[in-house]
């Protein structure tokens, strides 16, 4: 079974040389720690930077330089700043090649719910709806089940949707799963996890091939 860092490490294998990438808050942020050798990517943060670097060294933090999670960051050589309309032009215009974000629920036709729980304080969708509506390549990073042990991979989302039919791939603590033709397709098992465990933790329709390789990290 993978921990959060393991999920990030697996998703980092999806990075290709020359990609512009938007990482959401939480597990997705950790993907930046596992960029494969020889792969050059640039990170976009929707508040207005391309070429986002790591957190600043203590004492170097700048209130004017933050990411979409409002954390202090640094800028890489060649970075560029822009306004919010330009930022979402990059996103909606499909100039960003890969979007990684967290989710509360994903459905077998690629719907995603990650912004609102009825009856609880609603904080807002931020940029998530714009991101999922337009990205060509969306990977969801999340735990396979919620805190009550219930599956987060469902036939239909029960929570209010962030976007419809947009998620192509999900990497969880248990598996790598592709979404096509209205079903989850099991691609890989996490280290030490059996197919039966994945089947048991998946509420939506799961297509299991004869051979399911273990992830290589």
């Amino acid at each position: 079974m993978l921990d959060k860092n393991g999920i990030a490490q697996r998703i980092a294998q999806e990075l290709e040389d020359g990609y512009y990438v938007n990482l959401g808050i939480g597990i997705p942020t950790l993907v930046a720690n596992y960029i494969p050798q020889g792969v050059d990517v640039e990170f976009q943060s929707e508040n207005g930077i391309l070429g986002m670097g790591p957190f600043p060294l203590e004492g170097d933090e700048d209130a004017d330089l933050i990411n979409a999670g409002k954390q202090t960051i640094t800028a890489m050589l060649g970075a560029v700043y822009f306004d919010s309309a330009t930022s979402f032009a990059m996103i909606r215009g499909q100039h960003v090649q890969l979007t990684v974000l967290g989710a509360m629920e994903v459905s077998q036709n690629g719907d995603i719910a990650n912004w609102k729980i009825p009856g609880r304080m609603v904080k807002g969708m931020g940029g998530a709806m714009d991101l999922v509506a337009s990205a060509e390549n969306i990977i969801v990073a999340m735990m396979h089940t919620n805190k009550r042990g219930e599956s987060k991979l469902l036939a239909d989302c029960s929570l209010p949707l962030t976007g419809v039919g947009c998620v192509k791939k999900v990497v969880t603590n248990l598996a790598t799963i592709e979404i096509t033709d209205g079903a989850f397709h099991l691609l890989e098992r996490a280290p030490g996890v059996t197919v039966d465990e994945i089947v048991a933790a998946t509420a939506g329709k799961l297509v299991v091939p004869d051979e399911v390789p273990e992830m290589k990290l």
Binding site: E46, D83, F88, G163, V164
Partner: peptide
């Protein structure tokens, strides 16, 4: 949605009364 908010402000200043966006389709937005 954040991108729609940015674009709605931009449109307001640019003399464009409305625009179509994919963001929020199929959701309560």
């Amino acid at each position: 949605p954040q991108g729609s908010l940015a674009e709605r402000c931009r449109a307001g200043g640019a003399g464009i009364p409305a625009f179509f966006t994919p963001a929020g389709y199929g959701t309560e937005v």
